[in-house]
Amino acid sequence: MLRKLNWRCIIFIATAILGVIWVVLGFGTYGFWSAEEGPGAGFFPAIIGCVLVFFSVIECIRSFGRYEVKFDKDALFVVGSVAFILILNFIVGLLLALLAYYIVWLKCVEKYPWKKVILITLFYGAIMYGIFSLWLQVPFPTGLLGLI
């Protein structure tokens, strides 16, 4: 039975659970309807939750044992990239983390020669810094480096 449970089923089970949470909170905590004020804050979410539960259950049953969802291993490169930037952001700040990511990606993954890596990083880095930091004055986080 569990073998027939594919990713698509899991997604619809998750959406059904979300729907139940929305219905329960909508009816119970936020108020569905009051005689004086009419529909409450939970009115709309509870209805949406009901519709979501209904269709998620149908789709889950339909998907059971029928679909095979395969995730590509290469998608882990994106996960790794995001983790690399987030960790480095805490230490050197967002802009430097992004520059370091450019270098690591181009050198280690794409295997570009150093000259090309530095030229591309400087070119794109200058554009990003010029537009967002200098022109639009976005106050980027500076990480632990900023505290020194």
């Binding site: 990239s81 450019y102 990606w105 181009l106 794109y124």
Partner: peptide, 10 residues
């Protein structure tokens, strides 16, 4: 290979 880091940075 150049578009990938650029898009993630954006």
């Amino acid at each position: 290979g150049v578009m990938i880091p650029s898009i993630l940075v954006i």
